[in-house]
Amino acid sequence: MKAWPRELSVGLALAALLAALAVFAPSFFAPQPLLSLAAREAPVLLVACGAAMVIVCRQIDISSGSQFAVVSVAAGLLAAEGWPPAAVAGTALALGATLGALNGILVAGLGLPSIVVTLATMVTWREGLRWWRQGAFINLPDGLQWLGLGQAAGQWALIGAALALLALLALAARHLAAGRHLYAVGSDAEAARLAGIRPSAVTFGAFTLAGALTGLAALMNVIQSPQVDPKSGTGLELKAIAAVVVGGVGIAGGRGRLAGVLLGLLLLATVGPALTHLRIEAHWEKAIQGAIILLAVAAERARRRPAR
């Protein structure tokens, strides 16, 4: 396999978009707003990494947006109760991992199809949260925002943490046995089983990890503002999955890299702001986003034809 073949078209598309912006709307590159926008996308990157793990394992998770909302609200309530930030963070991670593990049990343990399981948990968490909270905002105590770091430092810390985690996960996926098992199970669960890997354990692990990443992401979003909106995370799962597939991760499992996910997310996250900067009216946004997804995957296939 050649180096970086699958991610090339995404990278080119991103480069083209950035070039267009540099010519027509250089204001896009003003450092301060760009830093803020990047910090806002940092949590999405973690959710997308989780989604990528699950997809590599030949499963799918569409409940991550609802998990995100549940963890956000729980973390917000605990913080408002006066829990110290470290305890809030620990609980958020644990809660995220638990929600992910629940998907994992249902998928890996009972052998149920993941799209249906996560469809069910997505609806259940979202409606349960609405029933419980009725949509009321949660006001957070003053010290929690940026964890006391100050705004710029906090934003850099979030971006740094997200990228470091991405790098760590990418390395683990490439070099650790557990990472290779993920790809093995995703390419052919039966072959993996015969090679001594337990596919159900790997699948369970992927869902749990994705849940923990979503929990962390929710926490990283909560500390960016002094209020928690219980509707946050609506539609996040689709954004994450879109970033993953645009980034060249094969939906049929076993193929794809986290670096591609980063590129995919950068592309998708740039489109919205780019349209505002290019003075294109908002009602074109969804159509353009859809066209970009289609073009990215079609270009990828056209370039590699007649593979498979």
Binding site: S27, L37, Q224, K231, T276
Partner: peptide, 25 residues
Amino acid sequence: VAVRPCDDQKDKAQTEATTLLSAHP
């Protein structure tokens, strides 16, 4: 100069407003 939707979410509104502030100095 611009009309932007936020899907009734505070988080999205924050992102949209950030972009608006840099796109329209």
